[in-house]
Deep mutational scan, measured.
Amino acid sequence: MIVFVRFNSSHGFPVEVDSDTSIFQLKEVVAKRQGVPADQLRVIFAGKELRNDWTVQNCDLDQQSIVHIVQRPWRKGQEMNATGGDDPRNAAGGCEREPQSLTRVDLSSSVLPGDSVGLAVILHTDSRKDSPPAGSPAGRSIYNSFYVYCKGPCQRVQPGKLRVQCSTCRQATLTLTQGPSCWDDVLIPNRMSGECQSPHCPGTSAEFFFKCGAHPTSDKETSVALHLIATNSRNITCITCTDVRSPVLVFQCNSRHVICLDCFHLYCVTRLNDRQFVHDPQLGYSLPCVAGCPNSLIKELHHFRILGEEQYNRYQQYGAEECVLQMGGVLCPRPGCGAGLLPEPDQRKVTCEGGNGLGCGFAFCRECKEAYHEGECSAVFEASGTTTQAYRVDERAAEQARWEAASKETIKKTTKPCPRCHVPVEKNGGCMHMKCPQPQCRLEWCWNCGCEWNRVCMGDHWFDV
């Protein structure tokens, strides 16, 4: 396979590697080409510095992935760790964990309700045991953590790749202090920090972006993250068709209702045909949960890209028209025109101005929308079919299609509260000796007794199943 190397943020060049090629071997190839010592090179990928003893497969490097290699003399205490030698983080029983690669970060837990604080980093599902597709590297999971809308060759929703760059020099040479644990960490600028490894760059702020994971991409090709779309790892039924499908869209209502993408497309087109989208002054033209839940309008309007190009163009047109109407304007009634106009409040005669090729020149009556006339309008008909009709959803289907309910059931079956801080902690095999993952707590306690870890627990039921 081919990976592209950008040395000291210059133009990239291809390097041929195998899945079992080590990072140090990659350094040696680059060092020979650039005429520099291999031990002064640092390989940066997806916000993480890659260790010498890791392989291309370990690092989730795919065909035509772009890695950054910078030349920086080692500072005291760094060289041993980078070589894969006596790194205290690798000691058996050590409590410190390697910062998780962005290629394996899962933010789907952050669609849980606000009262489930902490689960994004504490609760991990076991539903990723799908067998890898044919042709994928051994052991590589097909679980997708992110979804994007690819405006490039795909023109559809695709699995996405999370990447990070330095907000100062805009190069992907920043190593994160810690990985993101929720969508806010990724979507809110300057929320996460790190250290830029580019020479002479003092940058410390992280800037995240997404790429389409279905095809090789260049540095400049980015895609918009659709953070309401998630892999259906909890096997929730769709609120409309009641099938279990994946991926799904999880509405931001209190129940976190789930809808499959085909039904979401149908829901949007139906509402669009009836012009029953909601115009929100802050958000724009949007839709609420299909069950009509309060405070559930979709905030990231790129989710409506699921409509496809033709329907999305209609959505944008109707949204612009609705904006004009909300501002007190009118639409030209001549067939084939429909231009938005903003006449004076007491102006009865409205002319669709033909300047700049935008208007048709038609003069019409503001009251009856017919060709302009003197005197009273002959008839004014009330528009028919403008009443909002509820999208029919079966109550039982709505009850079963809740992301929140599956989460709470998982928590109930696989977790116990920490005796000190009461945060839910998952036990997935292993011994009875637990350690609270909350940095402010870190209590060592017994899963069996529910009390602080002691010699009695150690001698009596340390390794009970």
Rank of each mutant, 00 (worst) to 15 (best):
V3M: 07
V3Y: 03
F7E: 03
H11Y: 07
D18K: 10
T21N: 05
S22H: 09
E28S: 08
G35D: 07
D39C: 05
F45Y: 13
H68T: 04
G84D: 12
G85R: 09
D86I: 12
R89C: 13
A92R: 13
Q100M: 11
L102W: 08
L107A: 14
V111R: 11
L112V: 14
G118I: 02
P137R: 12
G139A: 10
R140S: 13
N144H: 11
Y149F: 13
V157E: 04
G160I: 00
V164N: 04
V164A: 10
Q165Y: 09
T168L: 12
Q171I: 06
Q171L: 06
Q178D: 14
P180T: 00
C182R: 06
W183F: 06
D184M: 07
P189V: 05
N190K: 10
S205A: 11
E207D: 08
F208R: 00
F209M: 13
C212S: 01
G213D: 08
G213W: 05
D219H: 09
H227K: 15
A230L: 06
N232W: 00
T242L: 14
S255W: 07
H257T: 00
C260R: 00
T270F: 04
R271L: 07
N273E: 03
Q282N: 14
L287T: 03
V290L: 06
A291I: 05
N295C: 05
S296K: 01
K299E: 08
I306H: 03
L307D: 00
Q316Y: 08
C323G: 12
G328K: 06
L331A: 04
C337L: 03
G340Q: 08
G355A: 14
N356P: 09
S378H: 11
A379D: 12
A383S: 11
S384K: 08
T386S: 13
T387H: 12
R392K: 15
V393R: 05
A398K: 15
Q400H: 14
R402H: 06
R402D: 02
K408S: 10
K408F: 08
I411K: 14
K413Q: 13
G429A: 15
G430Q: 15
G430P: 15
C431K: 05
C441I: 00
C441R: 00
L443G: 05
L443S: 06
E444Q: 15
W445S: 04
G450T: 06
V456R: 15
M458A: 15
H461K: 00
V465F: 15
